[in-house]
Nucleic acid binder design. Structure first.
Lengths: 156, 156
DNA sequence: GCATGAAATTTTAAGCTTGAAATAAATGAC
DNA sequence: GTCATTTATTTCAAGCTTAAAATTTCATGC
């Protein structure tokens, strides 16, 4: 009765490790394909797409810190990506009256139009790339991952 | 009977999109935590860990091209990471008799020892980070992702 | 042998990413 | 009001990553 719990723990962690490796490989495979298609089809990158997707959901704009926490990347990272999007005319940094440290980052009309085209293609690509996952499995996987996320976030 | 299939397809793709976003966020959250722990605990990075993990499974060594295809990253990428691991004394590039274009990349004894320590910690971390996923769900998720991988790879 | 093309790797330029330091502005104590 | 602290962001150095070009070596045909 002493070694039984220990070996059970070890067995569990091996299975979770296998799950993690498969999830990581699946993500990387899909990401690589999306990156290539965004490059070929729209001459842009995945990080730029991610920033534009976040901004599209927030018509009133987002702060830099809001972007970085939503996208799960560092502050400095977003600065560079937004800089490039600004120089391409796809987003703007609007000074705020109240707080001169911050600015509201928004999509321009051009940025909004370009994102809508990319988003439609993107949704189709995901449907294609995940086409091998049945509708039932899709729902089950999504709900498992949802609970994982909230479990994990609660502990941070 | 004309719009029905179309709307079904659209609904599917929305659900698959949701699944993808959750999978991506879960991966990024776990990766960020692993990166931080590898840095704090072993003063190393995730890409170095990945290369060492691949080499650990291949005692006879691997070619650069083998490493990059196994890790799903570009050739040039592996060059830089292996360069740094060599300069740290953790891996070697062994010239081959047959083909002077290639070299066998292997873990040194120091590299092997360090990897074993990291791998033990890593397995524990994954067990902890995925602790909220039940054993049943772990198996189910892993098998879904396995079939996804092989489906997808078959199409490439 | 020698040219030609293929294969393995490295190099390069650009961009992404992080963690830490620096900057700038707001807030709060007094 | 002034100073210290906190908050939001940018800057910086180092490393990661890619795609494309360049390099080196091998294999093949002649």
């Amino acid at each position: 009765m002493v070694s039984a719990p220990l070996s059970a723990i070890s067995k569990d962690s091996k299975e979770r490790l296998r799950l993690w490796i498969r999830m990581l490989r699946a993500s990387r495979t899909i990401e690589a394909e999306l990156r290539e298609r965004l490059r070929q089809g729209f001459d842009t990158t995945l990080p730029r797409f991610d920033v534009m997707a976040a901004l599209y959901r927030a018509p009133e704009g987002m702060l830099m810190s809001g972007l970085s926490s939503f996208l799960l990347v560092s502050n400095g990272n977003v600065t560079g990506i937004v800089d490039r999007l600004v120089s391409e005319g796809l987003v703007t940094r609007a000074r705020r009256n109240g707080d001169r440290r911050t600015s509201m980052v928004k999509l321009t009309d051009a940025g909004r139009a370009q994102f809508e085209a990319m988003a439609a293609a993107h949704e189709g690509w995901i449907g294609e790339l995940l086409g091998g996952v049945s509708e039932d499995d899709t729902k089950r996987l999504a709900s498992m991952l949802k609970s994982f996320r909230s479990n994990w976030e609660g502990r941070e």
